[in-house]
Simulated assay, not measured.
Amino acid sequence: MSNGSSLPPHRRLRGTLLVVLASVVVAGLGGWLVWHASGRDGGPRAGQPAPSDPTESATGRGGSHTPGGKGSKDHGPRAGLKGKVVVLDPGHNPHNGEHGREIARQVDIGNARKECDTTGTATNDGYAEASFTLDVVRRARTLLQEQGAKVVLTQDGDRPYGPCVDERAEIGNKAHADAALSLHADGSGAGNRGFHVILPARVTDGPADTAAIVGPSRQLGERLAGRFRAVTGSAASNYIGGGTGLDKRSDLGGLNLSTVPKVFLECGNMRDPKDAAQLTDADWRQKAARGITEGITDFLTR
């Protein structure tokens, strides 16, 4: 066979041009394939899934659709406690001291008679228990409402004194509360530190009958103690409860007269300097409110 060298010059030139053109086409096609696989316009590389929704952004896949995630458009209350009623009872009242006669009135708590209310305790620097309880309860109310709960307060600094302990219990009963919490801080001696939760004992006497709430109240107390400890970093009381953070009493009208699950929380000892430093710190009080909220949420969503 003959080769291209025997062809006329114009035929040889046309053959050369065809070879060059074919090389350009092949090279161009190869470049297009590489460009496409590498992800044009910053798109995903080969083997990576493309966004399934055009609204996804650099905040993360599904950023505007992930509940509570970065880029979330849902700023409304979460519905974890929707339909639940929580009663918060801030212990004492900042104005009780101005109404000594009224708060000294005796009321029936079932197995005894006790004063309507007391003034509560205070730190050595004068920070009142009643001021502490109102502050933390208001913080907890906000957090619980964000979870969708209906929150009822027994008082919000809007009463001249009290209410009396029997009325505090009745407020929770009338609200048909799913959980009720009475908030306090202790007034023990220096060196006595830590929080404890007071559970209702079984009392069936006069207007008091705690038989139906002893069990669920203990569950509420256990969850509250666990979350309060975890969030605040506080230790369980070293002087009440044998290190468990739990105590049971039958002499508190707010528990004796309750018909709904209810506990008391003593957040710390206001008379101990180290505990007082926490109780007077706004950041710690916010942690306390969060611990309370998480404990109540754990109980109501168990």
Rank of each mutant, 00 (worst) to 15 (best):
R302T: 13
S5T: 13
V137R: 01
E170S: 05
K262L: 07
L143Q: 14
Q106R: 15
A22E: 06
K82R: 14
F264P: 00
V34C: 10
L7M: 07
G245V: 12
C116M: 05
C116F: 02
S6R: 11
T293I: 08
V20E: 04
Y127M: 12
N238P: 03
V231A: 07
R223P: 02
V137C: 08
G60I: 10
Y127I: 05
L18G: 11
D135P: 09
T55E: 10
G30Y: 12
D135W: 09
P51I: 14
D125M: 10
R271K: 14
D41E: 13
L153V: 00
T16W: 13
R101L: 07
Q147R: 10
T154K: 00
T232A: 07
K248E: 15
P67W: 10
L257R: 02
L257W: 00
V86K: 00
I296T: 06
A128R: 15
N173I: 03
P273V: 06
A282K: 15
S57T: 15
S237V: 06
L134Y: 07
G60P: 01
G4W: 14
A175Y: 03
R141E: 11
P9M: 09
K248I: 15
R202D: 13
R14N: 03
G126L: 06
A27I: 14
S52A: 15
T121H: 06
R223F: 12
H196Q: 11
G76K: 04
T133I: 01
R168L: 00
R45Q: 14
L21F: 13
